[in-house]
Amino acid sequence: MTYTLRGRMIPYLLLAPAAVIMVLVIFYPMVYSAQISFTDAQLLRFSQREYIGLENYTRMLNRSDFWTSVGRTLTYTAGTVVISYTVGLFVAVILNQNFRMRWLVRTLMMIPWATPWLVVTLIWFVMFNPQIGPINQVLKGLGIIESGRTWLYSSDTAMLSIVITTSWRLFPAVTLILLASLQSIPSELYEAAEVDGANPRQRFLHITLPSIRTASITMITLLTIWSSKLFTIAWTLTQGGPGDATRVLSVYTYQEAFTNNRLGRGSSLAMLSFVLSLALVVTYFVLLRRDEKRVEP
């Protein structure tokens, strides 16, 4: 083996362990799940499964439940992305200013991001409690409501409640990334704009936003991917209810596979969710590539 050949192989050899692990823990389960989705597998009769072709897919795609669940997923995702991004950007802009104890505020803002998902749900479960929840206490104190609102149990407010909970957990990630991006904007740009008579709104719209465009695309795409497949919040706070008001695709998949014991159908739902996630990832790369081309001289 020549030195050059050996040199060429080194990167592959170094990548091999990671590749093997990825194949074992990501690709194999995915392929196996795809295989199960073409069977009538039941969890408790797994060994008796039979190949049924595309029946699970046609059945699920023809069910109104499935499309309702897709709609709920899109609502949940859109709500989470809008609130997380807007709040994250707002906080990032504030934290980009100079003020005393800025380091402390920056640290405190990261607490939700560092909190485990399950703890987040417990915190917000108490926050939304109709009897003792602080949200109702505050709203009552302000005279906005007269009696305790049942945030998690009413179809009108359940989705909003899980969107708020998820956004609370995710917005610090947006803040973190956008703050880094904001700090890389040369101050001369703002100074020159000020000299030219641009007001703060104009400076924000014409300097800040375009400068954080790439970071924003990255964050919006990541938020979309994270929230579209999130299970913990919707399951632990509302279990998909009331009715099907918060039954997003991940909850629907779990219920089919593990509550209703229909692993084959659950797997087909998981595959359809995977396709949705894949579409989002592809969109992300297309947007990013287009953005890079736009910036390139």
Binding site: T150, Y153, S155, G241, G243, Q255
Partner: peptide
């Protein structure tokens, strides 16, 4: 029973809260 209980509870919640 498990699936039935889930369906009944979901509908009862709609009756009570919605």
């Amino acid at each position: 029973h498990g699936s039935l209980q889930t369906m009944i509870n979901n509908k009862l919640v709609e009756v009570m809260y919605d």
